[in-house]
Amino acid sequence: MVIVMQKTARAEEIQKIVDTIEALQLRVHISEGTERTIVGIIGNKSVLTDIPLESFDGVEKIVHVTHPFKMASREFHPEPTIIEVGNVRIGAGTPVIMAGPCAVESREQILQTAHAVKAAGATCLRGGAFKPRSSPYSFQGLKEEGLKLLAEARKETGLAIVTEVMDPVNLPMVAEYADILQIGARNMQNFHLLKEVGKTGKPVMLKRGIAATIEEWLMSAEYILSEGNPNVMLCERGIRTFEKYTRNTMDLNAIPVIKHLSHLPVIADPSHGTGVARYVPAMSKASIAAGADGLILEVHPNPAKAMSDGPQSLTLEQFDQLMKELGNR
């Protein structure tokens, strides 16, 4: 349920509404838009049955949120959410480019990549220190050493760091280094982890599960939001279908659908969405055209020797060319 306040509603009228709701042990979320203030109510709203909220001074109307995802919905929060990460503003209208290797492999590799993507126009550096792999025998990441190398790259370039957190045990360590916590597709419904990252207050990038519906994806975002963390962005990274010519099927439909249903920023991941480097530029452009608030791209100095996801990684030169074509240079 949301309470839409009148344009002329005074601060004390809004506060009276808030005090009344909180006295009933319900939570309140205030969204101040350009035209109206929205008071969202979270919790068992049956206790409001006998409270004539419509008659309170300053109230314009009561709107019942029809979606199961409450805080993630546009009914609850009509204005688009803008997430600030240092000087980077995600969701503000200009696509944000995040780029870097799938995995941090060495100091030379990550620093070379960081300087190159920064020069090409990227504002965030992606890189995995903890790597969830299908095989237990594959490279699992450099762990804290990888996080330290990412921090060094940030110090040299000023790029914000995006890196994956896999479990609550390592969350404090990852949160110490990361600017944006990435929740991978395999962990989209790891609800305990979602709650814990929600408590950090740090920006979170929630990747869509490999076979998740849009509603399931938004419900996972709801777990983070419900812990008091409003800094959630969604990442479309392709879903599994019967197609064999690409690693996944990039669901471009999801971008405008999410923009319609939710106020949360949407990032597109054409690297995982296709799994093939030659298709990444086309799907990057298509994602921006569909309304994505940014891209997260895998870039490596030598994809042929990459320890993870080489076939879908752009070379430094290919990334530079793509940025020119996107108009970011």
Score class of each variant (00 low, 15 high):
residue 2 V to T: 13
residue 14 I to M: 04
residue 17 I to M: 08
residue 20 T to I: 11
residue 24 L to M: 11
residue 28 V to D: 01
residue 36 R to E: 15
residue 37 T to R: 07
residue 39 V to D: 13
residue 45 K to M: 14
residue 49 T to D: 15
residue 51 I to W: 11
residue 51 I to V: 14
residue 53 L to S: 07
residue 54 E to D: 12
residue 59 V to W: 03
residue 59 V to F: 10
residue 67 H to G: 00
residue 69 F to Q: 04
residue 72 A to V: 03
residue 77 H to E: 06
residue 78 P to T: 07
residue 79 E to F: 03
residue 81 T to F: 06
residue 81 T to D: 09
residue 83 I to M: 05
residue 87 N to Y: 13
residue 90 I to Q: 05
residue 90 I to N: 00
residue 93 G to F: 00
residue 94 T to E: 15
residue 95 P to D: 00
residue 96 V to A: 09
residue 97 I to E: 03
residue 98 M to A: 12
residue 98 M to C: 14
residue 99 A to E: 05
residue 100 G to T: 05
residue 105 E to H: 12
residue 110 I to Q: 10
residue 115 H to I: 07
residue 116 A to I: 13
residue 117 V to H: 01
residue 118 K to H: 11
residue 119 A to D: 10
residue 125 L to P: 02
residue 126 R to C: 10
residue 128 G to P: 05
residue 132 P to E: 05
residue 132 P to F: 01
residue 132 P to M: 09
residue 138 S to T: 14
residue 141 G to F: 05
residue 141 G to K: 03
residue 142 L to T: 11
residue 143 K to V: 05
residue 146 G to E: 07
residue 147 L to K: 02
residue 147 L to S: 00
residue 147 L to E: 07
residue 149 L to V: 00
residue 150 L to I: 01
residue 155 K to S: 12
residue 158 G to N: 03
residue 158 G to M: 02
residue 158 G to P: 01
residue 160 A to C: 04
residue 162 V to Q: 01
residue 165 V to N: 09
residue 168 P to W: 08
residue 182 Q to R: 01
residue 183 I to G: 06
residue 184 G to W: 02
residue 184 G to T: 12
residue 185 A to M: 06
residue 187 N to F: 01
residue 194 L to S: 02
residue 199 K to C: 13
residue 202 K to C: 06
residue 204 V to D: 03
residue 204 V to K: 05
residue 209 G to Y: 00
residue 215 E to I: 11
residue 217 W to F: 15
residue 218 L to I: 10
residue 222 E to M: 09
residue 227 E to H: 04
residue 229 N to F: 10
residue 231 N to E: 14
residue 233 M to L: 12
residue 238 G to K: 03
residue 238 G to R: 08
residue 243 E to L: 06
residue 246 T to N: 06
residue 248 N to C: 09
residue 252 L to K: 04
residue 252 L to N: 12
residue 253 N to M: 13
residue 255 I to P: 04
residue 257 V to G: 06
residue 260 H to M: 15
residue 265 P to V: 10
residue 266 V to M: 00
residue 269 D to S: 01
residue 271 S to G: 10
residue 279 Y to F: 14
residue 280 V to N: 05
residue 292 A to W: 03
residue 294 G to N: 10
residue 294 G to Q: 06
residue 296 I to C: 04
residue 296 I to D: 02
residue 302 N to H: 15
residue 302 N to Q: 12
residue 303 P to V: 08
residue 303 P to D: 05
residue 311 P to Q: 05
residue 315 T to A: 11
residue 316 L to V: 08
residue 323 M to H: 10
residue 326 L to E: 04
residue 326 L to M: 14
